[in-house]
Simulated assay, not measured.
Amino acid sequence: MLTVTSSIAIPDAELIERFTRADGPGGQHVNRTESAVELRFDVASSPSLPDAVRERLLARGDRRITDAGVLVIQARRFREQARNRDDARDRLAEIIRAATVVAKKRVATKPTRASKERRLAGKTQRSQTKKGRSTKWSAE
């Protein structure tokens, strides 16, 4: 059981783990052991996720989510399979936890008159500086 929040827990039956040989450091040991973990979680059809969280997860546009709505996490940071497995589960929990937070609605604002005037004054000043440079060089 993977506990994400106090109200969201994912049973192990919904998680599919596949172990593969990892690249990277480890010498000959890397060629013999399957220490990398590929964790798959079907976001689209999981009964453990609330509908709002599922929709936010699928709407994120994350490249780790397939077209079928399956979240795939690769973990090969460590040399031990158990640590990679824990790492993959922690990352899955963090992704789901991030989707539980509702983004604040953006309120459209307009720049004030003073800020517009400051911007234009700065542009004028910059223009004068550049004009001064060109006349200085052409006079010599």
Rank of each mutant, 00 (worst) to 15 (best):
K110H: 12
D67H: 15
V70S: 09
G24V: 05
V30I: 04
V101F: 13
A108H: 06
V53N: 01
L71H: 02
V102F: 08
K104G: 14
D42R: 08
S6C: 03
Q74A: 12
T66M: 03
R64C: 14
I95M: 14
V107L: 00
G24C: 12
K116G: 05
V43D: 00
R89S: 09
A82G: 10
A82E: 13
A44R: 14
R77E: 12
F41I: 01
E94C: 02
R91G: 02
T66I: 04
E38P: 05
M1T: 06
S48E: 07
I8P: 13
R113M: 06
S45Y: 07
A114P: 12
E14T: 04
G26Y: 12
A114R: 09
R119Y: 01
N31F: 11
A59I: 08
R118C: 01
I73R: 00
A9L: 13
F19D: 00
A98M: 15
R32V: 04
L2H: 03
E80F: 10
I96S: 06
R76D: 15
L57C: 14
T5S: 15
R106V: 02
L120Y: 09
S46W: 09
F41T: 00
E17S: 09
Q74C: 09
D12L: 15
K105W: 01
G122Y: 08
V70R: 01
A99T: 03
I95A: 07
Q125S: 15
I10L: 15
V72T: 05
E14W: 03
A68G: 02
A108M: 09
R79A: 09
R56S: 06
R32P: 03
T100M: 12
R32I: 02
I16H: 10
T109I: 09
A108R: 10
V43N: 03
P11V: 13
S115L: 07
R83L: 15
T124S: 04
A93L: 05
A68P: 00
E80M: 14
Q81K: 14
R89N: 02
T66Q: 08
I8H: 01
E80H: 10
D67Y: 05
I16K: 10
R32L: 08
R119G: 02
S46C: 10
T124Q: 07
G69R: 10
V72S: 13
A88Q: 08
A75Q: 04
D67L: 11
R18K: 06
S6G: 14
Q81C: 07
A93K: 09
G61L: 11
E14G: 10
T66H: 05
E117S: 07
E14P: 04
L92D: 07
S7P: 01
R89D: 03
G24K: 06
V102I: 14
R85Q: 06
D23Y: 02
R106K: 08
